[in-house]
Write a protein that binds this DNA or RNA. Structure first.
Lengths: 227, 227
DNA sequence: ACCCTAGGGTGTACGGCGTACACTTGTCAA
DNA sequence: TTGACAAGTGTACGCCGTACACCCTAGGGT
């Protein structure tokens, strides 16, 4: 009897590639990229590790599948807008997707060959450039210039040095002012004005992303206009 | 006797943090980033794995040390030049260092907090901006815009799709032309002109890097001039 | 001449990982 | 009823990082 109920409970939702991917994404969402392991994921699904291999091939394929889930969340390009607005909006949409899944950018970076889904996304971004009047050559360069920004992220040198109480951080940095004088100069700015999301050494990541994005897009527009 | 000789041979060059780092860099240079393991490295040094821990603490510290070795290879900034030339030259020097150690960029990306050596490098790059007439705010934005480019690399969406014979690659791509129409448009360019290092879907990575670098630097110069 | 200490190198062991391979079990067609 | 096929299981292998207790040797204080 009891065993029948158990079996029923287990069989209620049979293992599926989709279900595995959903569970993996959920697991990574709450535990970060390094918490994804076949064993941990199997446990989360109430199943033995090897069961997963009937649906995903290997771990790399799993990671690819997870990336695809995130990329699928990116909005379609808007219509009836110039190339720059279209590009900009779609990239910001991609960024929103990546912010919902903070593990995704590091997984994306680590992947060698992109998945067909990612390639299709890239291809459609190329289309935006071409329809916007870019030559094929310039579109090619543009794609390289954009780099990972086209997927909504850009690798930062520091991750935001948060997690330290603001005043303590300030003190540490003023102590280090003579060894890193220029970095130290950033502190008075943030502490002094002391408003908005810029606290401590941290900064408004969203602003910085859009700043860089616009700088690049403007540069490309200039080149396009010159022909 | 024999044992004495063995011991002598082993003791000839006693284990040292420097020696470990040199060996690790050499190992990664020839085997790639994923070939670095404490066990493998110990074996390379003719020593038991745990011996390393008397000198490096743990694997993360080892990786940090390896990064430092590479960063130390970057030339000092040139003198008596405007900020853009200084920046440009130093970044290209960094890129040369990273090309000598292809594993380094991925290790750099994977690291959370940068090492003091890296921080010092970043600080000195900030100094170049400031001495070039950037306000502190604009310098701050500029550092974000540069991102990893300041260390001589930028993450590409594909790694160069090399390793496939050129004509075969062309054929594959023309077959895929209807599913990735815009990517396919890149092929005739590379194949058609057929000169320089641009073969197949590949492209001149160095050119693309400098193209993007200059686009960003020019954009920043414009902002600086406006004040 | 003795011991003592400290530090570098060792050996063993633990818990985690990805996954190959042989197996049971449940389902449905013939 | 049987028999094939797919889904899930169990066991095992070879990697990994590293904690911990050990030994061995060189150097210094007595």
């Amino acid at each position: 009897m009891a065993t029948k109920i158990e079996e029923a409970a287990r069989a209620r939702e049979p293992l599926t590639r989709e279900r595995i991917l959903r569970a993996a994404v959920a697991l990574a969402d709450e535990g970060g990229a390094e918490s994804i392991s076949m064993r941990r994921l199997a446990q989360e699904l109430g199943v033995v590790p090897m069961a997963l291999y009937k649906h995903v091939g290997n771990k790399d394929e799993l990671l690819d599948g997870m990336v695809d889930v995130v990329v699928a969340e990116i909005d379609a390009p808007i219509e009836d807008a110039d190339w720059k607005a279209t590009m900009r909006e779609r990239i910001l949409s991609a960024r929103r997707a990546l912010l919902r899944h903070p593990w995704a950018s590091s997984v994306l970076e680590s992947r060698g060959e992109p998945t067909p889904t990612v390639i299709a996304y890239i291809d459609s971004m190329m289309g935006v450039f071409l329809e916007g009047g870019f030559s094929i050559d310039l579109m090619h360069h543009a794609m390289h210039v954009m780099g990972s920004r086209i997927l909504g992220f850009s690798q930062e040198l520091f991750d935001d040095a948060a997690s330290m109480p603001e005043e303590e951080a300030a003190e540490v940095w003023t102590q280090l002012a003579d060894v890193y004088p220029n970095i130290a100069k950033l502190i008075p700015v943030a502490i002094g004005t002391h408003e908005g999301p810029a606290v401590g050494v941290g900064c408004d990541t969203q602003f910085e992303f859009e700043f860089g994005l616009d700088l690049v897009l403007d540069g490309l527009e200039r080149l396009r206009a010159k022909g």
